[in-house]
Write a protein that binds this DNA or RNA. Structure first.
Length: 110
DNA sequence: TTATTGACATAAC
DNA sequence: TGTTATGCCAATA
């Protein structure tokens, strides 16, 4: 049932991304591709990124748990959002080694 | 309506 | 290991 998540609703794909993101527990991270797949949109990793980029600053969605397939934060290292994401991840127990996160350990659905 | 761009992924070379 | 090409969805020009 949770395999397609939101695929049974009238939600737009953008909203499906929101729902999928909500299902990620603290202490875990997920890649854009997995997030899209979880939302029922395999291959639409780009949409995941586009959607997160449009999130308001006061959103409650755990956008910081989304990283790229390389286990790195897909944001300019000098941006404030980058640091904030980094800090939030560590606060949830995600250990970051040399700027990279071990998806084998912290990856969701892994 | 078509073209371009964007917090990406995967395969092929 | 790094570069190139293709796919996907939405927003904007």
């Amino acid at each position: 049932m949770a395999s397609t998540l939101a695929s049974t609703t009238s939600a737009t794909n953008r909203e499906a991304i929101y729902l999928a993101l909500m299902s990620i527990p603290a202490g875990n991270v997920i890649t854009y591709g997995q997030l899209a797949t979880l939302a029922g949109l395999p291959g639409a990793a780009r949409l995941a990124g586009t959607v997160l980029c449009g999130l308001p600053e006061n959103t409650e969605l755990p956008w910081h748990r989304v990283i790229n397939a390389q286990g790195k934060i897909s944001l300019p290292p000098d941006s404030a959002a980058y640091k904030k994401q980094w800090q939030r991840l560590q606060a949830e127990g995600v250990e970051i080694k040399n700027g990279k996160i071990n998806l084998r350990i912290y990856g969701y659905n892994n």
